[in-house]
Structure formats: structure tokens, C-alpha cells
Write a protein that binds this DNA or RNA. Structure first.
Length: 422
RNA sequence: GGAGGCGUGGCAGAGCGGUUGAAUGCACUGGUCUUGAAAACCAGCAAGGGUUUAUGCCCUUCAGAGGUUCGAAUCCUCUCGCCUCCGCCA
């Protein structure tokens, strides 16, 4: 949610910023509504002040045993007028609010201008592409020959897009989650959270999935709950409607959860195997920070996510998303992509975003500044650290051997209790 | 699924038609005292909005929405949320 005040003060700049995100919003309509709303509000205020004053006089007369029928009749009149105007005001307010809640966050000034993902900027490439002097297998083949993944039976259970991990595949998935959680807890001092996987609409609203992206999520009709598309949702809402102590900031949480996405409209090659699935696991990091610190924290968050990939020794790159590719709520975002030797393409395994006060406004997440004892919105950030399906693709494919086995990276061996699959 | 209870400021907790934006306590901030701290004492301390050059003035908000009334935290209706007990179940 953008601050209406900010829009009033700088409508042209905001309009431009929003346009850079590919969103056409007519701020003149919004400002006009705002102007009318405020005009009515002023009238209502004056009438109310009038009524409050006279009501007090009536009370005084009553206390001394008298009655002022004339004043009471007049105030009944005023009451009706207030009611009429108030209805108008409420109507304007609702219009303003529903216009405001679908306007995306504005990009930070440092974000490169661009139209779509082709304009994203590669800011870093780490490691090297693994070289093989034999024919390599892709993750589907490895998953099948090593009995790690069973997509046929998964489809029988839940339909396509729901992975079934079996045996060491299931163990590897569990090992990845435990390893990454432990890593963030121990090395980066995050506090561990295990959240609900279903959430109310209000929680989805905080993060920006609602009201615009309802179709992307699974929804339980009877209970009116959404299956979370990311742990960002429950974890960010931990502090919804709270006022935090400034001393408690920054708050860093890490959580693993299943993530559920309908992925409506995606089809074709991208949906093979683990490339794009309806349910997957992800270790997420969420930060609540002081506004002036949020861009430093974004660097930190990105470094924390990168550290995971580095510890696996996987080849990856960092993208700085351009304005056109930024998500609805984000002001700035870095993506991490690992290299898939068999697909011969980069696979997104993490997004690290600063939402500034956009989510905090929607979820009413504030802190009390110790300098002046006033409340202000915190800045929220989150990043995947990281999502498991594509990580598993990269690991299986990168560490396969000529005889069809897969070497387990050193850091995972204590979790897998083995050095090799197969 | 059945029955009941409860939603008031950062927290706890009074108030149950008119000087109540809200007692009191805790927390917090400033001051006095102290070598310093603690304690004690004094003072301050909600948020949102309108208006104003500014000091200020005004309005709204006691879960939310409606209703009764000249006037609602207080009475009525509905909705939402939380809690407890019983039933069912891992």
C-alpha cells in the first residue's frame, strides 16, 4: 500500500515509478476522489463540532432540571445532515481504498529501468559451469534410475505437478531443508519458525497476493483459507497489527514450509519434472527492520542466500531485477539462479526483496522510535534461502558421475549419512 | 458438530447513556535526588484525519458494520476474531 500522503505530494513521480513497473494508473482520478473526500470530511467535522458543543449545553440544562426542546430539534436536523454527508464520505473513502490497494509498490531509484525479464541485469556470476566428458543425464532420468522421484505415481495421487520423493530422494529433500535451516540459524542468527500452511485472506492481503492475485493460490471454499504460496505469508504476519520496540529490530526469522501454487497458465517444457510444481518446499528468511537500514539488510539477505549455494559449490548467478520484472509488492529484488547442466539453463531458486513499508502498511506492522517515541512503519524483507526443487535438480545434475551415481556435497553428508547416491 | 464466555490505550484492567480519549497499575520518556545506579518523588506519554505560516484549533477511533438517541465504550441487531467446556478425530 502506498501512502496517500506521498501520492498527494508527488503524484507525477509516483505515476512514473508505477509506470516503470508496467502499471498504468490514473492518479488524477485518485487525487480528485481524495479532494472530494477531504472536502466532505471538513464539513462533517464542522457539523460534529457544532453538535458536540450544543449537546454539552443541553446536558447542562438537563442537569439543572430544565429542557431545551428547540436545541434538541435543531440538533436532530444536524444529525441527519451529518449522516447524509458521512455516507458520501464513506463512499469516497471506499473508492480511494480500493484504488490504492491495487497499485503496486514503487521501485527504488537504483532499480534498472526495463520492460521484462530480458532487461534484468546480471550483477554476479559465481563458480563455473561443470564440465563433463561423457553424456550426462537430466534430473528426471537420475531421479528415476536412482529411485528418488516417482512422477507417475504422484500424478495418480494428486495430478501433475505434485512431486513424490521416494527413499533416498525423500531423505535428500529432508536433508536439504534441515541443512539450510541449521545454516541460517547457526551462521546467520535467524530465529526458527514453523508456521501454519493455511492462512486467512487478511494475511495474504498484507503481503500483496490479495486482492489482485487470488487465482494464483489454492483456496479452501468452506473455511475461506488460502494454502500459502510461500512462508513469507505466515511469517510476515507474525507481527501484523503490532507495535515493535525499536530495540528488538532487526527481527530475523527463518522458516521452512511447503508452498502451494496453482501456476495457472504455465504449460509445456517448463513443467517437466521438478522444474515447476504446484507444491514444493522452501526455506524462507524474513526480516523486520528499521527503515533506514533496509537496503543494508537487503545486501545481508542476499549474502545469506548466496552462502547456501556457495556451500554446495553450485554455479549460480545473481540478477538485479529491472522495474518491469519486479513483483507487485517489491521495491527492489535480486534473484539467484543456479545452473542446470542438463537443461543448459539458469533456474531461479531464490528471490531476495525489500518491500520497504509497502507490506507493513497493509499489515499494520509498526515500531516505536526511541528518538521521539513516535510510531512508524517497519520495513520488511524476505528471501528464499532457498527453494528445494530446482536446487535438487542442480545438485543431482552437477554432481553426477559417469556410472550414473550422484556425489553428495560435503556439507550434506552428515545429514544424508552417505557420500554417494546409487 | 453442540454449549457458553470474552473483545477498551504498548500491556494489564476499570467504566455499563452526558465534564470518559477514557480511572488505576505496569512499561516507556524527561526531571529532582544520588559519586553513579536503584528506589522514591514530580511531570509527560494513544493512533488516525482535517485545518493552520505557526503556536494552535477541530474531528474520529473503546473488534467491525448497522440501529436507537439531541448525545453511545456504555442500550439493540448482525458480522468477525479469540477463549473455555462437551462431542469427533490424528
Amino acid at each position: 500500500m502506498l501512502s496517500l500522503n506521498r501520492i498527494r505530494e508527488n503524484p507525477d513521480a509516483i505515476q512514473q515509478a508505477v509506470a516503470a513497473k508496467g502499471e498504468q494508473v490514473d492518479f488524477n482520478v485518485l487525487l480528485d476522489l481524495d479532494k472530494q473526500h477531504r472536502g466532505i470530511q471538513t464539513q462533517v467535522n464542522d457539523l460534529r463540532a457544532d453538535r458536540n458543543r450544543v449537546s454539552e449545553e443541553i446536558a447542562a440544562v438537563k442537569r439543572s432540571g430544565g429542557d431545551d426542546d428547540k436545541a434538541i430539534a435543531a440538533m436532530r436536523e444536524v444529525g441527519n445532515k451529518i449522516k447524509t454527508l458521512e455516507d458520501e464520505a464513506i463512499n469516497f473513502k471506499a473508492q480511494i481504498h480500493s484504488a490504492l490497494e491495487v497499485i503496486p509498490n514503487t521501485p527504488h531509484e537504483s532499480v534498472p529501468i526495463g520492460k521484462d525479464e530480458t532487461d534484468n541485469k546480471v550483477v554476479k556470476e559465481w563458480g563455473e559451469k561443470p564440465v563433463f566428458d561423457y553424456d550426462i543425464k537430466d534430473h528426471l532420468e537420475l531421479g528415476s534410475t536412482l529411485n528418488l522421484l516417482d512422477f507417475d505415481r504422484a500424478a495418480k495421487i494428486a495430478g501433475s505437478g505434485f512431486p513424490l520423493y521416494t527413499g533416498l530422494g525423500a531423505k535428500l529433500e529432508r536433508a536439504l531443508i534441515n541443512y539450510m535451516l541449521d545454516f541460517h540459524i547457526k551462521e546467520h542468527s535467524y530465529k526458527e519458525i514453523f508456521p501454519p500452511f493455511l492462512a486467512r485472506g487478511s494475511s495474504l492481503y498484507t503481503c500483496g497476493q490479495l486482492p489482485k492475485f487470488a487465482d494464483d493460490m489454492y483456496h479452501t471454499e468452506k473455511d475461506q483459507l488460502y494454502l500459502i504460496p510461500t512462508a513469507e505469508v505466515p511469517v510476515t504476519n507474525i507481527h501484523a497489527d503490532e507495535i515493535l520496540d525499536e530495540d528488538s529490530l532487526p527481527i530475523n526469522y527463518t522458516a521452512s514450509s511447503a508452498c502451494f501454487r496453482r501456476e495457472a497458465g504455465s504449460y509445456g517444457k517448463e513443467t517437466r519434472g521438478l522444474l515447476r510444481v504446484h507444491q514444493f518446499n522452501k526455506v524462507e528468511m524474513v526480516k523486520f527492520v528499521r527503515p533506514e537500514k533496509s537496503y543494508d539488510e537487503l545486501e545481508q539477505l542476499l549474502a545469506n542466500a548466496e552462502a547456501i549455494l556457495q556451500s554446495f559449490g553450485l554455479h549460480y548467478r545473481v540478477l538485479e531485477l529491472c522495474t518491469g520484472d519486479l513483483s507487485f509488492s517489491a521495491a527492489k529484488c535480486f534473484d539467484l539462479e543456479v545452473w542446470s547442466p542438463a537443461e543448459k539453463q539458469w533456474l531461479e531458486v531464490s528471490s531476495c526483496s525489500n518491500f520497504e513499508d509497502f507490506q507493513a502498511r497493509r499489515g499494520n506492522i509498526r515500531y516505536r522510535r526511541s528518538s521521539d517515541n513516535k510510531t512508524d512503519y517497519v520495513h520488511t524483507l524476505n528471501g528464499s534461502g532457498v527453494a528445494t526443487p530446482r536446487l535438487m535438480i542442480a545438485l543431482l545434475e552437477s554432481y553426477q558421475t559417469p556410472d550414473g551415481k550422484v556425489i553428495i556435497p560435503k556439507c550434506l553428508q552428515p545429514y544424508m549419512k552417505t557420500e554417494v547416491l546409487g
